[in-house]
């Protein structure tokens, strides 16, 4: 066997052992980002193809999962975002930071007023609320909540300043809370205190 051939087999083996096991996680985030299975599959495939081509740039021992997410996020931002971008910019600034606290504290006799609300929120409501987040917010929320990346890792994956990661995460949280609270009101799970 030639050296070159052997090198290639090693590369392939290494890639299958180190990179491929992260496919489920990549697909999960891809699905939430693109909101449809076809695009999510294409996105993950593209990410793996690119990662394989650039495999010798991956530093052995460093965080392979973060590296793969960075590649995928890059492709998503450049090639997929415009397709699925919601045209209406959401104004997050008018949500008070203590919005939910204000809402729940008004009724205020029970020990844990929020538990009552939580018990009535369905998984589907949460899914919808996540999908309704603007792309930029959804990305950081998924990377933090679902994938457990640190602020610093998210900054590197999404090529953002640390301050931007924090502010998007903060605003993403507030939007999620507001959206879920609105569902609860709409479906009569809780009474509007306003």
């Amino acid at each position: 066997m030639t050296d070159r051939k052997k090198e290639e087999i090693d590369k392939r083996k290494q890639f299958e052992v180190e990179a491929l096991p992260h496919m489920d996680a990549l697909y999960r985030t891809a699905l939430r980002m693109t909101k449809n299975e076809k695009d999510a599959e294409d996105l993950v495939q593209e990410a793996f193809v690119k990662a394989y081509r650039f495999w010798d740039k991956f530093e052995p021992g460093s965080n392979c999962r973060a590296w793969l997410f960075k590649i995928m996020t890059n492709i998503f931002i450049n090639d997929y975002r415009s397709k699925s971008r919601s045209p209406m910019a959401v104004n997050v600034d008018d949500i008070d930071d203590n919005f939910l606290y204000g809402q729940l504290a008004v009724g205020g006799k029970e020990e844990n007023p929020e538990q009552d609300l939580f018990n009535k929120i369905f998984d589907d409501d949460v899914k919808k609320a996540i999908e309704n987040l603007p792309d930029d917010f959804r990305l950081v929320v998924m990377l933090s909540f679902l994938e457990g990346f640190s602020y610093q890792e998210i900054a590197e994956i999404a090529d953002l300043q640390l301050g931007t990661v924090k502010s998007r995460l903060h605003r993403g949280r507030k939007l999620l809370q507001k959206e879920l609270y609105d569902y609860a009101i709409k479906n009569g799970y809780v009474k509007d205190n306003v």
Binding site: R28, R32, L100, Y101, L104, A105, N112, E114, Q115, F118, I121, D123, D124, V126, K127, I130, V141, M142, F145, L146, R173, L176, Q177
Partner: peptide, 17 residues
């Protein structure tokens, strides 16, 4: 309140996925 909302959301995001 924020801690319990956070725990709830984080859990839900995991569950729905």
């Amino acid at each position: 309140l924020e801690e319990s909302i956070h725990a709830f959301l984080k859990e839900k995001v995991k569950v729905v996925n």
